[in-house]
Each structure stands twice: as structure tokens, then as C-alpha cells.
Amino acid sequence: MSAVDEIVREWTAQLLDSGSVAALVAGLVALALVLHRATWLPLRGVVTIAHEGGHALVALLSGRTLNGIRLHSDTSGLTVSTGKPTGPGMVLTLFAGYPAVSLLGLGGAWLVTVDLAHVMLWGCVALLAAVLLAVRNVYGVLSVLVTGGAVFAVSWFATPAWQALCGALLCWFLLFGGVRPIAELRRKRSHGRAASSDADQLARLTGVPAGLWLACWFLIALVCLVFGARWLLLMPQL
């Protein structure tokens, strides 16, 4: 064994020996992945899956008929449902996409903190399988399969310590990744390039300005990030 291999093994052992340190490192890595354009663009698809899954779930819960989900290579997505075009069901369906990402990260963070990372990972696999049934385009199917395959591999092959670390990384990514799309949407709207966004559709349905919907989503994402970070940084020993 080379000196480099020995150093890597020793560093890894020390990292996994402290849950809070491991969680902090995972958080810094996730933040870098979200902030760096070269990594954010390919990984943003994971956020889109959670976003469209939120639309789909609330559409079903509100009594609407889910027609399908489409995920595109530019990381945009579309969830189509039929039902009453106005009213609470439609408003909740449109509202649900952005908060779904942060709430999923928050729920996962709690599970990881109480030493149930395996439940969090298998829950993600189950949710991805449900989304897969609703996807209606080839790219969307491939995107969900790749994401689900990665999570399944960690769930099946990784040790409990690495499951917890990878689970924490995913939660951090969703918590940070729940904030950036809202900022991106605000920037697009300021340049007149998002007339059909969820916020603008909600504004037309309710009369509440799109900016207030954006502010509400940002507040939810920020609260989830604060509480999720607090939980993750209190992770038990791995």
C-alpha cells in the first residue's frame, strides 16, 4: 500500500468517526456543487425531478388527474394535469414545485440525523420509481433511471457509515438546490424571460403579484435550509 493510500484511508476513518465533521464536509461539497456552474448544470436535473414530483403529488392529492411529467435536457420540466383550471387545487399544484425540493431535503435531513439514512435512501428510490411511472419522454426516463440507479447503488452496496454520509450530501444538495432556482427565476423574470413561470401563472390565477410568490418560496427554502443544516450538523457518530 502506497503512502497516499494510507493517508486517504486514515483521513476517511477520521472523517467517518465524527458525524458533525462529516456533515460539515458534505455540506461544503454540496454548496460547491450548487454554486459552480460546471457542476450545477448537469446536477440541476435532480432538482427538476423533485420539483416536478412535487407538482404531480399535489395534483393527485387535490383530486386532479395526472397526465404525465416531461423532463428536458435543458433541466426544465413540465407536469400536466387535468381538472378545474381555477380554484385551490390548481393553485396548490402550481405552488408545490419549488417548496418540494427544500421540504424533501428537510425530511431527509431529519431521517439522517436520527440514524435512519437507509430509510431516507430507500424512500428516495421509491419516490423516483413513482415519478418514473409518470414520465412521458425518453430523456426524462433516462434522467430518473440514472438518478435512481445512483441512489440504489448507495442503498445496496455502501456501508451504513457511507450511506449516512451520502444521504447527508444529498440532503445538503436539495437544501441548497432549493434556493438557487428561485434566484434564477427572479433573474429571468427581471429580463422578461419567464412569462409562463409558476409564479406568473399563480399571479394570473389569484391576483397576488408574482414577486410575493417568489418571496414566499424563498422564505420556505431558507427556513428549510436553516433547520436542515442544524439537524445535519448534529449527526451522531457514523
Rank of each mutant, 00 (worst) to 15 (best):
S2R: 06
A3R: 11
A3F: 12
V4C: 05
D5M: 14
D5Q: 14
D5T: 15
V8S: 08
V8W: 03
T12G: 07
Q14E: 15
L16S: 09
D17P: 07
A26S: 13
L31Q: 01
A38C: 06
A38G: 11
L41F: 03
L41E: 08
R44Y: 08
V46H: 03
V47K: 05
A56V: 05
G63W: 01
T65M: 13
L66M: 13
V80H: 07
S81W: 12
T82M: 04
T82Y: 08
G83D: 07
G83V: 06
T86K: 13
G87I: 06
L92H: 00
L94R: 04
V101Q: 03
L111E: 02
V114I: 12
A129Q: 03
L133Y: 10
V135G: 11
G140V: 08
V144M: 10
G149A: 12
V154A: 07
F157K: 13
L170S: 08
C171G: 11
L174D: 11
L175Q: 07
F176K: 00
G177K: 02
R180L: 15
I182E: 02
R186Q: 13
R187D: 15
K188H: 12
S197K: 04
A199K: 00
P209W: 02
V223C: 09
C224H: 04
V226D: 01
R230C: 15
L232F: 10
L234I: 04
P236W: 10
Q237E: 15
